[in-house]
Nucleic acid binder design. Sequence first.
DNA 1: CGCCGAGTTGAACTGAATCAAGAAACGTGG
DNA 2: CCACGTTTCTTGATTCAGTTCAACTCGGCG
Lengths: 187, 187
Amino acid sequence: MEQLFSHLRKYHPLSAEAQTAIQNCFSQVILSKNEFLLTEGKICRHLYFMEQGALRGFYNLDGKEITYWFAFEGDFVTSFHSFTTQQPAVENIQLLEGSVLWAISKETLMDLFNRFHEIERLVRIAYERYYVRLEERFVNAQFRTAAERYEQLIQQTPHIIERIPLGQIASYLGISQETLSRIRSRL
Amino acid sequence: MEQLFSHLRKYHPLSAEAQTAIQNCFSQVILSKNEFLLTEGKICRHLYFMEQGALRGFYNLDGKEITYWFAFEGDFVTSFHSFTTQQPAVENIQLLEGSVLWAISKETLMDLFNRFHEIERLVRIAYERYYVRLEERFVNAQFRTAAERYEQLIQQTPHIIERIPLGQIASYLGISQETLSRIRSRL
DNA sequence: CGCCGAGTTGAACTGAATCAAGAAACGTGG
DNA sequence: CCACGTTTCTTGATTCAGTTCAACTCGGCG
């Protein structure tokens, strides 16, 4: 649990009372490789925090699995669209390694927001960071070549390359596995 | 000013006190076509709300202007990256029509957050909506063809097609103007 | 009238996808 | 500890969507 707090503090400091409340509201979830945290069509009712492990979000397009994000230690995890709107998810979230997560339901989180302005602030700040990251990924997807995106991946998130199979990395970069293999052989 | 409130209420209801505070903290800005709200290298110190008009965010890549978003009536406007981190902006924000905006500085907004939990909540909710939109755009950019993206643009944001020159729409969709022209002639 | 920006059209080119085959690595049970 | 199937990765040949460069059309407007 201390891991969770040390990550949360990176966004915004928390009072002892807020920490106690968080402690009482998150519950631990342990899952093994290949299990699903969420499947498409279901409503995502929880926000998770990853203490240990790895997972991916993907959806099906023309019979192919499109992996479009990964999460590792220290990341928040949820289907953002489904969690915030409470509409059915279009994507799946699947464990890539045996993992330890902390879960909180939407209602409990809203309750925490009502009781602690500072917790809602922390989440507001977290949103800002995640938004900026997504914006950067969007710009890369739309305006950079496959090779440029791969090189940026190596520099910014090398752990992805070490822990994730090539096919899923290719999908994440929006290119075919064959193309990624060729890009790699050229370096 | 009532326009501003009616848009803000779509995110979250506001008490009379909060509304009064907002009224005192936003100031009107009137700009004409082609003027700049922000240029690259500058730190974006304000959040804007567009009451009337249109503008675009773009940045320079290899000597070309890449337009990557538009704003119209009812939109929040800022360089998200620069405003939240207070780092120099990499993009420019330019008026496409004569426009009426409301501006608030970062410090004043933070002060409002401290005084009114409900205003920070409103912004938290606004972030959620903008995040979901960006996520959708990202998925389109990475995994859909040019024609698919254009068709989606027609359906979801037809006002863009009506008010924006073709070259900028093409840029927004991540394709060349020639390709967009051809796609269009096929419909 | 002639210029100018905005949009169109054509031809050649290219980055990346697809299809197909094979090689390497991996893990599981006998 | 080896054999087998499965998954992961590589390589080659072909195809295709979209780019680039270039020329041309069209509608305003000074």
